[in-house]
Amino acid sequence: MVGDELTMLSDRRAPTKPAFALMLRFHALHGRFPKDRHELPDQAVGYVARLVKVAEADLSLYEWDGRTSKGHRKKIREYLGFRECGLTDSDKAALWLAANVCDKERHLDRVREALLAQLWEEKLEQPAPDRIRRIVGSAISQAEKAQTALICNRVSKESVVRMVALIAHSADRAPRRTATAGMRTRCSTRRR
């Protein structure tokens, strides 16, 4: 915590000071807020509690999803220049991923890493893990459709007609096995 960050804490009540400070630092490092106290390292909690001169136990009084927390999140986003990732942002991110990442990369972890880096660069807070999975899935699907369309456009109409005829011809020549024919074969083999 430095200068401006310490000043932001001056008007906070004792139990909320360490929570605000920890949320601020966590967001500055990870681009999202901690879900609860369990995501925060004990050493960091102890350090911040000493720094703001509040008992570490006071942090247990903080409601991580309460009204106060929501106000803190808003202030922290404003201070860091971030904003929440809305549906339009998610769609835009999926399009960006499809065009810039998924055309060459399909490994889910690498695509996810690229998404998080892009969100960070655009100062967008990371959405929930489920939404991240949907964005990545949508991007991969869009990239596959674009690649399929590109390949299809390269195949001449004449080649398509010839492939369809070949497939139809091979389907006509394939032996059709019925259950009765299979039984006859098995039975005649046993008699020998």
Results as ranks from 00 to 15, higher is better:
I132P: 05
A181C: 08
S60F: 10
F33S: 03
G3P: 12
F26P: 12
Q147E: 03
L166S: 15
P129R: 07
D91Q: 14
T178F: 03
K145N: 06
A49M: 01
F20A: 04
R32M: 02
K74Y: 04
K123A: 01
G182I: 03
E5A: 14
E144Q: 09
V45N: 08
E105T: 11
M183H: 12
L51R: 14
P175L: 01
A44I: 05
D42S: 15
A93E: 00
A99E: 11
K74C: 05
L119G: 03
Y47C: 11
V54I: 01
L80R: 10
L40C: 10
A44W: 09
L59W: 00
D42I: 12
Q43I: 12
E39W: 13
D4M: 13
T180R: 10
V101K: 06
C187A: 15
L119W: 01
V160F: 00
R67Y: 10
A149P: 06
L22S: 00
A117W: 04
A181E: 12
M183Q: 13
T185V: 13
D36Q: 14
A181H: 10
A21M: 12
D89W: 06
R110T: 05
W96E: 01
G66C: 08
W64C: 10
M163T: 07
T68N: 14
Y62N: 06
M1S: 15
K157C: 04
K145F: 03
A174P: 05
R106Y: 05
E158R: 14
S10T: 10
H30D: 02
A179I: 02
W96I: 01
P41E: 01
H107T: 10
R50Q: 12
R190P: 02
